[in-house]
């Protein structure tokens, strides 16, 4: 009986195509990124082997660590926001009237491309005509904040649209997971006198913990390598106040023609992501036991 599920041919048939694609189209670039990281290369012309020079520079590069800190902050924010999304998903999936409609609407911003979202939020944050400051001045607040232009606020300001943009992504997955929770278990708990909160906390959430764990990893890794909106909205500025690892890497590799150093940053990011994932898995496994 076990034989069926350890059928070698089937396993190879199922796994190999994907594995080959990934090895070929992702691992070769990963290996090459590591290799370029050992070079002094502008991306044009001759490469020069310089060993670990780029990595040594990286360790002492204040800007790199600053960008890393910003990326880590984004990761923390994203993970925290998961709690909010979970609550929303629990409400929407709890068969309240109109839940399905609300869910559909909530996910709509996710359909928009980053180009549109960036423009929308630049307009919302505009210090003079923007939505937020117009509202604030309507309530009589004179000294309205500068948002993206204020180095102390820019980073947090730019987090808001990012977290908002991804809300749909997480909600749609959590929702699908919650909908899959067997109704019988919930009924049984209800008959035992459990209220909605207890059912959510004791039954639904543990049952979708597998999905939640994956989402935490996706949120952290996705945040660490995040690029799009930040690059369009602030370009990493003002004065690197919103620089993240990926934008820093892009600027070095494509803007400044330091392709070797840019690759080293990319490889550093990869290692950081691996470390973070390993840690999350450790932590969540302990939690579950």
């Amino acid at each position: 009986m076990k034989n069926v599920m350890s059928n070698k041919t089937a396993i190879i048939l199922y796994v190999l195509p994907s594995l080959l694609l990934v090895l070929f189209l992702i691992y070769i670039p990963i290996a090459l990124t590591g290799y370029y990281g050992l070079m002094d290369w502008s991306g044009v012309g001759q490469m020069k082997f310089i060993g670990l020079e780029n990595y040594k520079k990286l360790i002492h590069d204040k800007l790199f660590w600053e960008s890393t800190w910003h990326s880590v902050l984004l990761a923390l924010f994203s993970v925290l926001s998961l709690i909010g999304y979970l609550i929303v998903s629990l409400i929407l999936a709890s068969k309240i009237k109109g839940g399905n409609l609300f869910r559909k609407i909530y996910i709509i911003p996710m359909l928009m491309s980053s180009v549109a979202i960036a423009q929308l939020w630049i307009k919302i944050f505009d210090p003079m005509n923007g939505l937020i400051n117009s509202l604030l001045s309507m309530f009589g607040i004179k000294e309205t904040p500068l948002w993206l232009a204020d180095p102390d606020m820019a980073l947090y300001s730019v987090f808001i649209p990012i977290v908002w943009q991804y809300a749909g992504f997480y909600i749609i997955i959590m929702y699908a997971a919650l909908i899959n929770v067997p109704q019988e278990l919930i009924e049984a708990a209800r008959i035992d006198g459990a209220n909605a909160f207890q059912i959510a906390y004791k039954i639904k959430v543990p049952l979708i913990s597998g999905v939640l764990k994956v989402l935490v990893i996706l949120a952290v890794v996705g945040s660490l390598k995040y690029f799009d909106l930040i690059y369009v909205m602030t370009g990493g500025g003002p004065g690197h106040a919103t620089e993240v690892i990926a934008s820093y890497m892009y600027k070095e590799a494509f803007g400044k023609f330091n392709f070797g150093y840019g690759s080293a940053i990319g490889f550093g990011l990869l290692i950081l992501s691996m470390g973070a994932t390993w840690m999350i898995q450790k932590m969540l496994r302990v939690n579950q036991e």
Partner: peptide
């Protein structure tokens, strides 16, 4: 103009 450090040339 106020907030110009967040403005692109187009803005």
């Amino acid at each position: 103009v106020k907030g110009n450090t967040a403005f692109s040339n187009d803005d």
